[in-house]
Structure formats: structure tokens, C-alpha cells
Amino acid sequence: MIALLAAARAVHFASTAMVMGTVLFQYLIAEPAFRTAAIGGSTGARAYRSRLAPILWIGLALAVLSGATWLLALAAKIGDQSPPVAAPGGVAWVLLTETQFGHLWITRAFLAGLLCCGLWLGKPREAGSRFGQGLTTVTAMCLLGSLAWSGHAAGSPGVIGDIHLIADVLHLLAAGAWLGGLLPLSLLFALALRQTDPVLASTLQVATRRFSMLGLLSVGTLLVTGLVNMSMLAGSLPTLLTTDYGSLLLLKIALFVAMVALAGINRLRLTLALPKTDAVHRLDRNTRVELALGLAIIAIVSILGVLSPAVHMGMQMK
């Protein structure tokens, strides 16, 4: 049951981050870059938007399905039942209607509905209305950020708890902006490599620089909020080194460092070499590697959430 719970968490984190990152990338990076180059109505821009739309719809569908699976797997774990027994009316219903987690899930289901309306009004294929874009951006951020209330931070009492929650919300949003933006960035590289349009190449340059700025902001936020979270849950150095929680946390940090190193190479060397085809190829390759590392980090985070934090070593646990 723990494995199903961790898997549902992983898919949910990945899909909500993908949706938020894609929305931010389209509305804050790609569309302004298209407008700067005055190619918003071009074939290339239209082709790009038509590739983003399925990512958003599939991502949202996966988020809803994995959210429901998360609820059922958690109910099964709490009630010591298998998911089919937990599903109809029993523990899952009580969990949904009588607990903080359940109320959060009802709110998030409402947010997912609003996001669906925003996507429909925002029409990612056509750049859509400003209202639709705004609604999509805000609801996608709320859908991801609200996950902080489902984790360890939700239980920390007092001012320390408030700091933990704020740090977790910012950590999730920064991770979503960076990780979620990698796939749309990679699609933009692929499009530029396929269409040898010089205007599209200059758009790519603008978009890469803008994403680079967003990436810097995200890394800074992830570092500070990650330190706060670590001081809350990691415990002492020995517990960090001797517990499963600590080992996974160290692995997560190592993968994060590798991602930052790749992002550094992209920003300091390859972005400057744009629009050369070789630089686009290498940026595209690095972006895909970063995405793979990011997904591995999400898998680790999903497992960390179901483990007892290292700070609890020695305390009584079920």
C-alpha cells in the first residue's frame, strides 16, 4: 500500500508541476517572446501552441486521477484495508469529509475544475483571452502550492509551523516553475531545429534568456526553502547519515546539484552561443537530462513524504 501511495504522490507531483510550469512558460516566456519578434500569428507559433495544449490537458487529467488514487491509497493505509474496500463509502468517505486532508482535497478538486475552465477560456492553442490566461495561471499555482498542506509541514504547530508551510509552498512553486518549464522549453528547441526560420531562432534566444532568469529565481528560492525544510525534518548529521529518510534526502540534494550544474552550463555557455544549431542541439540535450533528473527528484520526494523524518529517530512510531 505504501508503494501505491508513493506512486500516486509521484504522478500527482509531476503532473501538477508539469501543468503549472507549462502554463507559466507559455504565458510568461513563449508568448512574450513571440510578441517581441512579432510572430504571434506565425505558423511556427501556432505549431508550438498546438503541442503545448495536449501537455496541459493530459497533465490535468493525470493530476485528477492520481489525486483520487492518493486519497484511496491513504484511506486503505489508515484503515488497514485494500483500496477496493476503502473505496465505497467507508474510510475513504470519512477521510474526505471529516479530515483536514479531505477538506484540502475537496478544495483542490474545485481548483482543478477552475483550471479546466481557465484552459478552455485561455485556449492555449490560440493564445486565448487574458482573463483565461490569468485564471489558468493562478489556479495552476494554487493547485501545486496547496500540496504543502498535505505533507509534513501541515502538522508543525505554531510560528515554526507557519514558516515550514510558507517555505513548502514556495519550494513547490519554484520547483514547478523550473521543472515544469523544461518540457515546453525542450519542445521549443525541437521546433526551432525542425524549422530553419531565422525569426524563430531569435525568438528562441529571447525565450531561453527569460527562462534562464526564471530558473535563477527558482534555484535561489529552492535553496533557501530547502534549507528551512531540512532544518525542520533532517535532524542531526548522524541521523541524516544513518536513516533511510536522511539517505534519500542526501540523494535528492546530489541530484539537485547536478541539475544546477547543467543549468549553469546552459546559462553561462550555451545560451550565449545561440542561435547556432550546435548550441540548440546541446541545450536541448541538457534540458532533457535536467528533466530526467527532476523526475527522479520528484520520485524521491514522493517516498520522503510517506517516511518518518530523520528528526523523529528514536521516537515511538507505528
Binding site: H152, A153, G155, S156, P157, I160, G161, I163, H164, L227, V228, S231, M232, L233, A234, G235, S236, S308, P309, V311, H312, M315, Q316, M317
Partner: peptide, 15 residues
Amino acid sequence: LLVMGSVGAHAHAFL
């Protein structure tokens, strides 16, 4: 928190 390091927030309910 940042100066003193670990504060050990409780992520589970202990007696």
C-alpha cells in the same frame, strides 16, 4: 532557524 540549524519540528503526533 537558519542560524541555529535543526529545530526538529514534529511531523507526526507523539505523546
